[in-house]
Design a protein around this nucleic acid. Structure first.
Lengths: 141, 141
DNA sequence: ATCCCTGCAAAGCCTTTGCAATGCA
DNA sequence: TGCATTGCAAAGGCTTTGCAGGGAT
């Protein structure tokens, strides 16, 4: 797990400024590991910073993605989700409770196996699983 | 490749009605294998059916997805894309030209290997690769 | 004849943008 | 001090919805 100070250093190293808003947003991302949406981050940070604007949240999230600190997930749910976990992994969307689970799976291995097959240069690989988690598995009598 | 008549039968078998609009939309999906957006289907069908409305396109696409004839792809590009190809496969988004390529890869194999690992019941699996296609590979001198 | 489906237009949701004021470096 | 960053509000893109008329079965 990264510390907030290390992450701020990385931002600064890229020539970006550290503002209270950005610190708070990063803090929120570190605290909320449930793949939150921009809206959820906004709501969470606003509790301690009522003047925060949505634009700032979107700005900061994009920035963190650019710097490579944050992963942006589009799971086909209508809004983007954010994941500050560093290692690449697959995601599983539970159709019952809507929760998103991390699945340990090395996407790079998959990317490598597909690389060059078609002359592609693969930079990134996303794996999204849909189904039911243990709690939501429909009663299979 | 499915024929339009077989597909219409499948629709009818589900208790849905066959309208000229639906036939035309299915036809367009069969003709355009480039993973078109709803907008692209709308534009294409409207050439021969100027009164077609967007609502009907969205309606029909959802319906075809429900019946299982059509796959809906959310590739993180801002809009949904549709694919009437029957076999499960991965998708590769070229960051250069924006084109979307089919990649032969058995997602079910992946799903099976991950199943039960976490007590999940996996119904569906999407694999999205991002990178550059052969034509767009940045000059690697 | 039923009621599903269509077209139109408005609304909805998430995200982006413009601009003046603010504050970090 | 200079310029990136902020907040506000409006606009934008894609999709959904409500409703009355029309068409498939």
């Amino acid at each position: 797990m990264h510390s907030i100070d290390v992450l701020c250093q990385q931002l600064r190293a890229q020539g970006r400024r550290i503002t209270p808003q950005r610190r708070a947003i990063i803090q929120a991302l570190l605290e909320d590991g449930s793949h939150p949406t921009a809206e959820q981050i906004y709501t969470r940070v606003r509790k301690g910073m009522p003047d925060l604007s949505q634009a700032t949240v979107y700005n900061t999230l994009h920035e963190l993605v650019e710097v490579g600190i944050l992963a942006e997930l589009d799971l086909g749910l209508g809004e983007r989700r954010y994941d500050i976990t560093t290692t690449a992994h697959a995601h599983m969307v539970c159709l019952g409770c809507g929760q998103i689970y991390d699945v340990h799976y090395d996407c790079n291995k998959l990317a490598l196996s597909l690389e060059h097959v078609n002359g592609f240069q693969i930079l990134d690989c996303a794996v999204i699983l849909r189904g039911y988690c243990a709690n939501c598995t429909p009663e299979l009598n």
